[in-house]
Design a protein around this nucleic acid. Structure first.
Length: 721
DNA sequence: AACGCCAATTTTTTT
DNA sequence: AATTGGCGTT
């Protein structure tokens, strides 16, 4: 590709970023401003103009999806393979370094990765062993504590406990780390911390990487946490060509340790130039105006204002639903009209604050016969049956893996009960042995009696026999053999119902995935099996069953980041839901909620609907929510409120008045517009019954008492609900 | 080991 | 409301 082609079709700011001289740079990239494009073209520019070798390029993202997209777009742009380039996630790249230097990192060659579920189970077992009440110190909270500390780069020795309570957390952290180290296991946060420590303590190694990668690029920088920042800084060394791309207004992972301040830190630590990408190629000017106004309510911003030379588009429609069913009905009705107008279903998305909201929406879509796809939730490699199977493979690859041992020792049931198991655990703890070797020792020393002994022996033999018999097989055959021989397949085949059938299918899919798996050539693994196991942990399998069917896209606001849709619905935009109950003024999380709202709004390309329900069933109780404060922060001229706006006429010198049902909100419901009703009482709270239609509205606000006209805003109340 | 009952618990999520 | 986990019973 010609150099000038790299700059073609870019705006001035994008060009400044792509063609900048070698320097540290912050690209403050607003939503929809073409940041991926800039990153990709910058990489191509480095290669073609600065003559950078692909081996010198290091690009970091947060998700596998983003990494994959970047790689394929780079390859598309430079028209050759991007092999040799390191493009990956923080965890993926750190993991790669750890594999290559596992000895220096004090890890066994076949070390494995704990996901958060494994981590919690591990902690739970530990609490039991340490005789700690898991009601007082819930495993979930403990794992949260440990991860948070690791994200801060803190080992137990670096932490001073403030009180007895924290001291307990600290003790568990210490014990947990000890257990992981002995079992050859690393959790997600450990991957980053361990890699950081490795580089920090091995100057030769660090220099090697620093020299190899003079060109670094980082995406979504606003989501970096403390350890990720430190890791980057270490790798960048004194080199002066780091490009970070981010948007402080889209920082929505503070609750997970992301530090928005890292952007400012980067500016001073790296003495970096700032380039702002503010031209938006996604949304209508109305949507941008609204989003800009909303986010302006946040303080401490880097400052940025999106603009477009595109159309004004339609106003943002705000629908005040009577309850969540009405809300769902409204959304589905609008999607139906959108579809009937000749649009594609997959171009519409429903966004919500929490996953629990999806159910009602689903039901409404189902009723209307509209296909939908829900993002998030249980991923492929996180499923119970898959984790069972993987645990067999893990234990075969590494006998020290206590987490895997615990999971499968009695799955399927083979007569190893709690009594026997606690003997094994005690022995393991007393002798500082992995559970596997403790079990073997107990058999050898004849500490186990008849039935328990034979059950354990059978298990030990099973694992050893599997290992022996799969030596000559390829990965797919290994998995197949293991799943069948272990009895897992038979166990799930015996499980009745839809669930059992699905699980068997998943196990088959796992075998299939093993066949499809290509071991990354450039990376160093003890065996293909180890490589596959790492892959399953780091890439939990979102793309496993990705069907590109035409369906309504449903997801939380968080998972919508980075995506765009012509038609977007934001549901449940109510106080207590969004901003959520726990992010009130005191918690200091309001600004992050506002950013989340900003993220949601800027997903919409053409039309945005925002809805809130007056009444909502939440945790089995009726809750009354007022519209979200965020709605008031949107300029009125960007908004069209869809409500039953009833115009009321008051005859002179009379208490009687009539009102007319006159709003589009009823269009899709089959009610008759223009229906009139007579009343004698009028005021806040008066219920208007539209006879024969089953519709009601309740007067919410009465104002403008001018002459014979009252302007009244009333909410719809549908009797069918 | 399978079943059933009771109690607790409810943001957001990637790796 | 609905799901999950723990515990006791068969």
């Amino acid at each position: 590709m010609d150099v000038s082609e790299l700059l073609d079709g870019l705006n001035d700011k994008q060009r400044d970023a792509v063609a900048a001289p070698l320097q540290n740079m912050l690209v403050l990239a607003g939503a929809g401003s073409g940041k991926t494009r800039v990153l990709v073209h910058r990489i191509a520019w480095l290669m073609q103009v600065e003559h950078a070798s692909p081996y010198s390029i290091f690009a970091v993202t947060f998700t596998n999806k983003a990494a994959k997209e970047m790689r394929s777009r780079v390859e598309e742009t430079i028209s050759t393979s991007a092999g040799g380039m390191w493009i990956g996630t923080f965890h993926g790249l750190s993991h790669r370094i750890l594999r290559a230097h596992h000895r220096e990192a004090n890890l066994p060659e076949a070390f494995q990765i704990l996901d958060s579920d494994d981590q919690q189970r591990m902690i739970k077992r530990l609490l039991k062993a340490m005789n700690i009440d898991d009601k007082k110190w819930p495993p979930k909270q403990v794992s949260w504590y440990i991860s948070a500390k690791k994200d801060e780069g803190l080992r137990p020795k670096d932490i001073k406990a403030y009180d007895m309570n924290e001291q307990m957390f600290l003790n568990i952290y210490t014990a947990y780390q000890d257990a992981c180290d002995r079992a050859g296991l690393v959790d997600f946060a450990e991957i980053l911390l361990r890699c950081y420590e490795l580089l920090n303590t091995q100057p030769t190694l660090l220099r090697h990487y620093q020299q190899r990668f003079p060109h670094m690029l980082v995406d979504e920088f606003q989501d970096t946490n403390t350890i990720q920042y430190a890791w980057l800084k270490l790798l960048a060394g004194s080199g002066g060509n780091v490009m970070i791309v981010g948007d402080d207004d889209q920082s929505i992972y503070g609750w997970r340790g992301a530090k928005i301040e890292n952007i400012r830190r980067f500016l001073s630590d790296f003495n970096a130039q700032t380039i702002r990408l503010e031209q938006n190629y996604r949304s209508t000017s109305t949507i941008l105006k609204a989003a800009n106004a909303l986010i302006a309510n946040n303080s401490e911003r880097m400052g940025k204002s999106l603009w477009t030379d595109g159309n004004e588009g339609e106003p943002i429609s705000i629908y005040a639903a009577y309850n969540e069913l009405d809300e769902a009905r409204f959304i589905v009705g609008k999607i139906r009209s959108w579809l009937n107008a000749g649009n594609a279903l997959q171009d519409s998305a429903i966004l919500y604050r929490n996953n629990a909201q999806s159910r009602i929406l689903e039901e409404a879509l189902l009723q209307e016969g509209l296909k939908y796809r829900i993002y998030g939730g249980m991923r492929f490699f996180e499923r119970q049956e898959i984790k069972d199977a993987l645990s067999y493979l893990r234990l075969i690859g590494n006998r020290q893996d206590d987490a895997a041992f615990e999971r499968i020792i009695n799955t399927p049931t083979r007569g190893i009960g709690d009594r026997t198991l606690s003997l094994v655990r005690d022995c393991a703890r007393n002798e500082s042995l992995p559970l596997w070797y403790a079990a073997k020792a107990l058999i050898e020393q004849k500490h186990l009696t008849g039935r328990a002994a034979s059950a354990i022996t059978a298990f030990v033999n099973l694992i050893e026999q599997i290992e022996e018999n799969i030596q000559e097989l390829n990965l797919e055959e290994q998995a197949k053999y293991t799943i069948n021989t272990s009895g897992l397949m038979a166990m799930y085949q015996a499980e009745k119902g839809e669930k059992g059938r699905a699980r068997v299918e998943n196990l088959e899919e796992l075998i299939n995935a093993c066949g499809q798996f290509e071991l990354p050539e450039e990376e160093e693994f003890a065996s293909p099996l180890t490589g596959f196991l790492s892959y399953t942990a780091l890439e939990s399998g979102e793309g496993q069953a990705e069907e590109h069917e035409d369906a309504v896209q449903m997801m939380t606001l968080h998972s919508a980041k980075g995506l765009e849709f012509p038609l977007v619905f934001m549901a449940g935009v109510e106080e207590g839901m969004f901003p959520s109950q726990q992010s009130n003024e005191e918690s200091g999380r309001l600004e992050e909620e506002r950013r989340l709202c900003y993220v949601g709004m800027t997903r919409a390309m053409e039309k945005l609907y925002i809805s809130h329900a007056e009444t909502r069933r939440l945790y089995g109780q009726e809750k009354y929510h007022s519209p979200s404060r965020f709605l008031r922060e949107i300029p009125e001229q960007c908004i069209e409120e869809i409500r039953i706006k009833t115009q009321v006429t008051r005859p002179q010198a009379s208490n009687r008045f009539s009102s007319t049902m006159s709003h589009a909100a009823f269009e899709d419901t089959g009610f008759n517009l223009g229906q009139r009703v007579l009343h004698t009482k009028f005021g806040e709270g008066t219920v208007l019954n539209y006879e024969g239609t089953g519709a009601q509205s309740r007067i919410q606000v009465a104002f403008d008492d001018v002459g014979t006209k009252w302007l009244v805003t009333a909410y719809a109340r549908l009797q069918s609900i």
